[in-house]
Amino acid sequence: MKLYEYEGKLIFSKVGIPIPKGIVTEGRVVWNGKAVVKAQLLEGGRGKRGLVKVTDDVNKTIEEMRNSGIGKFLVEEVVEHTREIYMSIMMDRSSGEPMLVSSPQGGINVEEASDIKTLIIPIERGPRGYDIFTVEKYLRVKGLESVIKGLYKIVTEYDADLAEINPLAVTDRGVIALDSKVILDDNALFRHEELLKEIGRKEESDNYVELDGDIGIIGNGAGLTMATMDMVKLMGGMPADFLDVGGGADKERVKECVLKVGNNPKVKKILINIYGGITRCDQVAEGIISAYTDVKKPIFVRLVGTNEEEGWKMLEKVGIKFYQDVESAVGDVLR
């Protein structure tokens, strides 16, 4: 779960990472003088879109951004600083340990930074004085202990996949996190109920991702569903979503999925790709059929595996097109 900047900063303040003074608002605020107004969106690139603004008239700026459809803002003091650096900690997949990534080139997209240092800090020992010294020396900045320990704690105790500060401002009163990017591990949200309550968020599923196209995609298994999306693209279409019904989906689950995709106004046709192992094709067919009358959009079903013949018979009866190989199904969807 990706957090909004202000939510990430709330966690920063809990773990002792210095942040600018500020308030979160949806409308007018009481603020004296100059401030930075930052639209609270989950997408990056806010600066380029004019959604982060230094202003003398806070409420006027909020009003302008509201008119362009933004609902939530973080109003912060302007932090005078001499340099901007980059720092993050994430779980490194190859070592299975938290990895600190830093760069003296802050404020830019880290993928484009040429000067980058990574440092594995094993869970068994946690960050130590020599780690902090090493990073301080590399970045030529003192006083990074609270930031490094704080980010480490967000990964190891708050179960973040990624905790990032970009930029971290170097000021004469120490370093201050100007931005935050925190992505929590969805699998671990069950043990952070209090935090979720505090920020007013709910556990969400990663089984559905919306895209820009017009062909609704449903599959079972993440790999097969992605492969189906990719084939639609390769054969000239544009997928509208990624939806994995999951392992062993029953008719209710399938119905819910077909309705979800079918009710997306962008979706013109629906492609369903099922290889039944622990998933039963008759259950899949039943789920599709019960959603079909409500959805009223063309559905193309590739269905093989456990109880396939029962599934085919059921689809045939109601006139839903079904296939055994994916290529013909995709071909017909795009025709």
Partner: peptide
């Protein structure tokens, strides 16, 4: 076709 920073299942 997967967008970046989105978990695909």
């Amino acid at each position: 076709t997967a967008p970046k920073e989105k978990r695909m299942g």
